[in-house]
Nucleic acid binder design. Sequence first.
DNA 1: GTGAAAGCGCTAACAC
DNA 2: GTGTTAGCGCTTTCAC
Lengths: 340, 340
Amino acid sequence: MAQNSGQGITIYDVAKKANVSISTVSRVFNNSPLVSSKTRKKVQKVIDEMGFVPSSIARSLVSASSKTIGLIVSDITNPFFADTIDGIESVLHSEGFSVFLCDTRYNREREANYINQMLEKRVDGIIIFSADISGIELLTGIKNELPIVSIQSAFKEVDCVNTTDEEGAYEAVDFLIKSGHRKIAFLVYDYDNSTITNRMKGYLRAHDDEGIPVNDDYIIKMKFNPNAGYYMAKELLESHPEVTAIFAYNDMIAIGAYMAIYQKGLKIPDDISVVGYDDIEMASIISPGITTVSQPFYEMGRTAAELLLKRIKEEDRSIPQTILLPTRLTVRGSTRTLTP
Amino acid sequence: MAQNSGQGITIYDVAKKANVSISTVSRVFNNSPLVSSKTRKKVQKVIDEMGFVPSSIARSLVSASSKTIGLIVSDITNPFFADTIDGIESVLHSEGFSVFLCDTRYNREREANYINQMLEKRVDGIIIFSADISGIELLTGIKNELPIVSIQSAFKEVDCVNTTDEEGAYEAVDFLIKSGHRKIAFLVYDYDNSTITNRMKGYLRAHDDEGIPVNDDYIIKMKFNPNAGYYMAKELLESHPEVTAIFAYNDMIAIGAYMAIYQKGLKIPDDISVVGYDDIEMASIISPGITTVSQPFYEMGRTAAELLLKRIKEEDRSIPQTILLPTRLTVRGSTRTLTP
DNA sequence: GTGAAAGCGCTAACAC
DNA sequence: GTGTTAGCGCTTTCAC
């Protein structure tokens, strides 16, 4: 173990003690091949003894690269963000980059503040994974100078990594239809963004392809609130008890629906089937487990980081591209086949 | 709007264009009073026009302070971490500090890696909010050089910010007893740490103080798994259906218990009352809302940050101190009064 | 009130 | 293979 954490110790201290020049010290901890193994060993020993840790600040100043990327998310507690962050870091760390992570909590002011911090810190690029679009608006002012990759929000002006939302919803609803369900509700937030639009398209197209008419009354919308799923399902169960399946826009809504169903004294999936979206951890904890559309969050992170790194390295500012990643239906206990 | 984000523009560029020296430019964006308002206005205009953003890298190098603190958490998706992080940032930002946030996901290797990154980045201090103790072990090697504050894990060698776990559990169980409950189960993880020990103490002392004997069979233990609450409650309901109330070690366990109770066809709180701990968001989403012990997460963050800042500023390395923050029982629909 | 100059800890030519 | 040296973009004395 080193005697200390190297705070305050510089290459000069190491050089002096090892009787070499600072260049040699620099070469050693940069793994330059231009050092004899004998010198390297000698210097490394002194580095370890003194607990020397090179200052990334000084390195950044001369190399004109902070080796840091900024990551903006709108809500770090959102369970699937963690996997995405993992994916991002897995590729970034192997390239020696670190991540400056900022949680805006859907707050514009914080967002602006963080972006300014990133500029000051001279991040080499920015990845933004924000449910709403506002952060991206703020970024447009700098997108010509700094590579930017957006995850899960379609935006033509920067590189994007998205999932196939329409197909995911299609697969979920198609699964219900093929299981014999005909009266399938859709519980969704009342907003206008590409994700909602695409999942709605999938819901409609699945009906269309199977020749099943859509009953507009089965589409329940509500502005976002943490309890929205509960209220929407409650309303649905009262007004349309004939419904045999619910497709929820996401797992949080599905969980709210569970509560409304349980309180009505109904059983899942015996009386009603439920399908969610996202596959958050709670989807497998709750009982029965939620049949849901899993998104490749880790892969999304990896893809975004690779895209960004390519832009950083190649200084490539050509036309922004969008990469679409596929989803997968995970079947658990919340759905059953309807035998007529 | 600035023409660009200032990447690549230095104080020399600004100085030249404004016809002043670089010192003056520096004084302007540092709000030094030693500039005439006329000069200030002139320089500020150029700064805005060019979109100059000072490099925190260069500033850190000369000022020998990164104005950054490292924050280590074991799982950012843990819902209450977000509030704590908010609290931390609220005090840090007002002092011009930024936060380097690292999610170790309970992985030692990542932890060590992040600590090394923090050392390289020359953070001015570290706050660690990690369920397990390992991170703190890693930090002991550097605690003499860098201020460290730990949140929610008792550790004598560094400053700590904790909550009154025993009192929180006491208040919860006392509330149940005062509501007429006599057969109260405790569902808890099977580990040996101070938080678990303290809540157990609270559970026992509440019984003791009211002269109610504790039935050891009502204390159900299980190693951590995401579904532990469900399994423990299931076991309890089968072996001891006479129980009228459950005190869960945390809200996740309480939610698992809800599932087991619902599947048994029982109603909450009619057939059985449930009390949780933490007051995570889901505690108010789920139905009925969970009566639970709320922790002052935001305040914990603020307190930790203030403690750290004090250490950083005063270069104060005196005896580590521990600050205990109180909890509060939040009564919702999951509990009822038992009329004999 | 303003400017000149030294130096923070490193990297990267360039010289030997 | 190794050392010397000139900066990187700022802050901070110290003159004026």
